[in-house]
Design a protein around this nucleic acid. Structure first.
Lengths: 263, 263
DNA sequence: TTTGGTCATTGTAAATATTGAATGTTGTTC
DNA sequence: GAACAACATTCAATATTTACAATGACCAAA
């Protein structure tokens, strides 16, 4: 979050301290090293004293660690506990995990389960790193822009968004080999027709990505199943079979979660 | 956190909104189901309107999910992202992981790396669940009271705490087969002498736990390596060897982290 | 050792978030 | 189908927190 975005969130909210706290947590998360009060305040456009109070509160809550010697702040392990609690009661990641494991084994692909957060981004909430795919390392909790890669095409295809909004979001994406907006829209239409989307080396050169949407409720898809693999390897393993298998898994998952695909 | 503890944190802090927000997050984490504004407010002793503003801020920060249909709140996947960032830059979990894997393989034990948070509790920050130990499932982010089991004896042995404080904390612990405070103190002395601690079925009947402390800095231990196994199985695998191996790993880790064991 | 500068930390005036009652909304019972 | 009850939500007054300037602590360089 930029500091202008932060100041907006602070102004519009009735609990600005919370926006500030979240911004501090995100900043500390991004930072490679622990940070001092002043550095944090400068980066976020906060008054140092306010920043100090925020940090102290976060330290008291065990979300931030304070090194009394260096007077530096960093994330604390308490954030792990929250994450575990989220995972513990997440229907999607529980149900998706065995499917991801099976598909990953069968096709020697890296499998992801992602949660879609509007048009902003998606978050990896389950993964299966079977085999030797060292180049495609991802972690649970990783975030990606919503419209990127195969999953992005699914989000656009089944989200019923305005063209103008899609284009605005599309233009700021970073691809290895970016398609034109027109090419991309054609691919989105194709995804709508087929029920799944393919990214053949656009996002990452040489890497093929297949994604199929999952619905938790009627309306927009809430999650997606994703398969990644080196283009050649996936083709050898049988891309059409993978596509159909992934689509089937996504449909099963939609049913299991009590959701409903359109039509 | 009880609501009296919360009100204390709110009063003493200059950023009470943050204490409230953290309390809300923890409550939502504990809860088996999504909660409404009123339920949260009641549980935490908050004014409903204040609670609503806190929730809205947390929703805006993507730490809490809001279901517009049911008007219920739950943890959101954003907490995963924070956890990933914490893990990404955690020296201990990176260094400990291969050791835990190796030890777990060798002795067919469940291995944990825990971070010690004062006398309050410890948090599991790395683990290796090799083999068939289905009964001993734990997860990263799990919390335990500081003085429990073998790790607790290490914390007491190397922490230089007041006896009165230890006894107060000791008395509220829940064991399957609790030792008396005197027995426990003798075991703590033994741990200090040996450099590691053993819990032979006290915490969980039939389960043996071995723990060795790790120092990140001079002073109190910051982490510990822990091995858990069914008592009989660990003995068969060679308990003395495990103890020495674990102790060696902990010492290596202390060196790698730039720490220093006492004496 | 002294000096300069940076940083973390404290008091205080003003802006504003919290409060508790009032309003609208939903789902449930008769 | 109507009335109720529980709930989420809004609104205006005030107790609180925020921001700013000043202080104190610390480190580095001379």
């Amino acid at each position: 979050m930029t500091d202008t975005a932060l100041s907006k969130a602070v102004e519009s909210s009735k609990a600005p301290a919370i926006s500030r706290a979240a911004a501090v947590l995100r900043l500390l998360g991004k930072s490679e090293t622990p940070l001092g009060v002043q550095a944090i305040a400068r980066e976020l456009g906060l008054v140092p004293s306010t920043c100090l109070y925020v940090l102290r509160a976060l330290v008291a809550e065990e979300l931030v660690a304070f090194d009394a010697d260096t007077k530096r702040y960093a994330l604390e392990a308490g954030v792990l506990t929250l994450a575990r609690q989220w995972l513990r009661r997440n229907q999607f990641s529980d149900l998706a995990q065995p499917m991801l494991d099976r598909l990953g084994q069968s096709f020697d692909a890296t499998m992801l389960g992602v949660q879609i957060v509007g048009l902003d981004h998606m978050i990896v909430v389950a993964l299966s790193q079977s085999g030797q795919n060292f180049q495609l390392r991802t972690q649970i909790g990783s975030r990606f822009p919503a419209l990127i890669s195969a999953t992005g095409r699914c989000i656009a295809a089944f989200g019923d968004y305005e063209d103008a909004e899609l284009e605005a979001r599309f233009k700021v994406l970073r691809w290895d080999e970016a398609p034109s907006f027109e090419e991309w829209k054609a691919q989105v239409r194709e995804a709508r027709r087929q029920g799944f989307a393919v990214d053949a080396g656009n996002y990452i050169s040489g890497v093929t990505v297949v994604a199929a949407p999952v619905w938790k409720t009627r309306g927009r898809p809430s999650h997606a199943l994703v398969a990644l693999g080196i283009g050649g390897a996936l083709k050898r393993a049988g891309l059409p079979e993978l596509e159909q298998d992934l689509l089937g898994a996504a449909r099963t998952l939609t049913q299991q979660m009590g959701g409903e695909a359109p039509n």
